[in-house]
Amino acid sequence: MSASVSSSGSAAVSISGNRFVIVGGASLVGSATAAELLDHGASEVVLFDNFAFGSEAAIAHLKDHPRLKLVRGDVMRMADLLRVTEGAAGVLQLAAYMTLSMDRDPWGGLDVNIRGVQNALEACRANKVAKVVFASSNATYGYGPGVSGELVESTPFHSVGAPPAAILYGASKIIGEQLCRDAYRKWGQDYVVLRYSTVYGERQHYRAANALYIIETIDRVKRGEAPQVFGDGSETKHFVYVGDLARANRMAFESAATDVAVNTSGPAPVTTLQLVELVTELAGGGAKPEFVGSDGKVRLTSGGAFRIAHEAAKDAIGWAPEVDMREGLRRLIEWRDGNEGKGA
């Protein structure tokens, strides 16, 4: 998918003075993006959520903001979406089951990740929303032996040997992207797809399979237990700091880009062992990590070392990551220490 950038800037949506809706807004990314949009002058930011996964804790720091509105609703109810998107200039579509939730309830996940996206797009069509930003994932490249080297936007989907829930999640994100393309082709709905790497940062939750390495390591270190590394520790992970991602969401609205899908990853990948050692150090130090086998949880694996390239995002929306893992983890641990470890 290549960028189609309007020379007149017709796909660009100004943040200042406009109303935005974040579908699935009571979340790690939703709360950070709301703050970003408010800081840049949005007239109103609406957080739309059914609180199946979202939480009051994720948005507690914003609840008294005069230009923030919380609306309880469900992506499976078109009437809810039609009401909330009326008068919106932009919609950020975040609501989704992630891999761990997909593992517990695949049918519910497919409903939300596919029909929910189509419902949101139809509501945007009805209310003439100028631009949609769709939160996709690097899961669109799959998992297993084929996932190695440079992962660019044209890298195909790999599914051999991966957990079913991970493949269902990745496939549902591919379908969501194609629904956006379909809406653009059929009725000119401007959109940008951002393929998020694993997100981490303040208000971190326990629902993301890869981010569990961070949270579980912090918890074990705080309890005086040895952190755990699954496998030999050489497994590659690529994270992105939530503040960088909030900025990417804003810049996607502001840019003239449309009909494009780009990666939004952090500055550099990290191995599981490097990650666990860094978290242990920043959390105050402790025992050396112990290497363990399967714990029965869904653990996502790749075929070898990889890097999720983010250069296309610079070309399309002007974005590049700024916060490295050390600084991002420092901020996350500082936040948890100040909030008694209560994540979103």
Rank of each mutant, 00 (worst) to 15 (best):
E322N: 08
G90Q: 09
V199D: 01
N210M: 13
V84W: 04
G41W: 03
V13F: 13
G328Y: 02
E153A: 09
S294T: 02
A209T: 12
G142I: 08
G286A: 01
L329K: 09
Y143W: 12
I174H: 01
T140V: 15
D49L: 06
Q204Y: 01
H61I: 02
A165G: 09
G224L: 09
G73D: 07
D337R: 14
V192I: 12
E327C: 00
R115H: 12
G90D: 13
V270E: 00
A316W: 03
G285R: 01
A26I: 07
G284Q: 04
V5W: 09
L282C: 01
S8V: 09
N249S: 14
H65N: 14
T217D: 07
D111W: 04
V192R: 10
W107C: 03
A123N: 06
D111H: 10
F306E: 10
D324N: 15
G266N: 00
C124F: 01
W187D: 12
L81H: 03
I15Y: 08
V13I: 14
R331K: 15
G318C: 11
G9W: 12
A287T: 00
A60I: 03
D324S: 06
A11G: 10
L329R: 02
V240D: 02
A183I: 05
N113C: 08
A130I: 00
K186M: 07
G233E: 11
A287S: 07
V240Q: 06
L94F: 12
V132W: 03
E153G: 10
G116M: 06
D232A: 10
S31K: 04
A252V: 07
S136L: 06
P106N: 09
P289W: 03
K173Y: 10
L37W: 06
G266D: 00
R115N: 12
Y241G: 05
G142M: 10
S10F: 06
G54H: 03
V298H: 05
V262M: 06
L278M: 15
Y141I: 08
L278N: 01
S101W: 04
Y241L: 04
D324K: 03
E322A: 14
G30Q: 12
S55D: 05
L275C: 02
D219E: 15
S136C: 04
L62R: 06
I333Y: 09
A209N: 08
H238V: 11
S6C: 14
S302P: 00
I214D: 06
G303F: 07
T33S: 15
S172A: 13
G108L: 13
E327N: 06
L70E: 14
A268C: 00
V112W: 03
E86G: 03
L100D: 14
P156Q: 12
G343Y: 05
R207G: 07
